[in-house]
């Protein structure tokens, strides 16, 4: 029996079905975070100080700090102004299919592995994966695998939510799993 769970992926629009408030909010927030990331990246690459950027935009430094500090403060107006002021650039306007921007797609497949190998700290470090154990004490000895009932993890740098069952886990594309767990016995 597996105790793992999946994070529900984004429901895509179909037919005449109304899109929920949550989904619309997510798409808006996702766009804002993408834009925010773009501006931060350009700002860091530019080597400019925030005071310089603020002067170019005749903006209060505190207002600029708020723009750079949180995605939700970024509007189309501020985006275009900031990109131009920082780097003399304008935003790209290509429309991409959901998930296309991510190097690794957010798709979940079940893969059976040796759980004992996965949870060894050395493996955790190599794979940059954190397991959060639920209803079980944390043990690092492989023979304690029976204590592990459930875990979910996120990894930075890969669109991935993981959950660990007693002998299986869920994650992103299979090829990535094989690559990342090549040192682990696949059951």
């Amino acid at each position: 029996m597996t105790t793992s769970r999946q994070i529900t992926p984004l429901p895509m629009p179909t037919g005449d079905e109304p899109i929920s408030k949550g989904v619309l909010s997510y798409m808006s927030a996702r766009y804002q975070t993408n834009v925010h990331s773009l501006v931060l990246e350009e700002f860091e690459r530019s080597g400019m100080t925030s005071a310089q950027v603020a002067r170019r935009l005749r903006m209060d430094p505190g207002q600029l700090a708020r723009l750079l500090g949180n995605p939700s403060n970024m509007t189309l107006d501020t985006l275009s102004g900031l990109l131009f002021a920082i780097a003399g650039k304008e935003p790209d306007t290509n429309a991409l299919k959901y998930g296309e921007m991510d190097a690794r797609q957010n798709e979940f497949k079940e893969v059976h592995v040796s759980s004992a190998d996965i949870i060894q700290p050395v493996i955790m470090r190599e794979t940059k994966i954190v397991f959060l154990l639920v209803n079980a004490p944390f043990k690092t000895e492989p023979q304690e695998i029976g204590m592990y009932k459930r875990a979910i993890a996120i990894e930075r740098g890969a669109m991935q939510f993981l959950s660990l069952g007693t002998n299986s886990f869920w994650s992103g594309p299979t090829n990535m799993i094989k690559q990342r767990y090549e040192k682990v016995e696949v059951a």
Binding site: G22, V23, S25, Y26, A29, R30, Q32, T33, N34, H36, S37, L38, L40, E41, E44, P71, S72, D102, I154, E155, R156, G157, A158, M159, Q160, F161
Partner: peptide
């Protein structure tokens, strides 16, 4: 949803 987007922002290695 806004919170999920932010957590994914981190997971996707966007600038933060």
């Amino acid at each position: 949803a806004q919170c999920r987007a932010l957590l994914e922002d981190y997971v996707r290695n966007n600038w933060i």
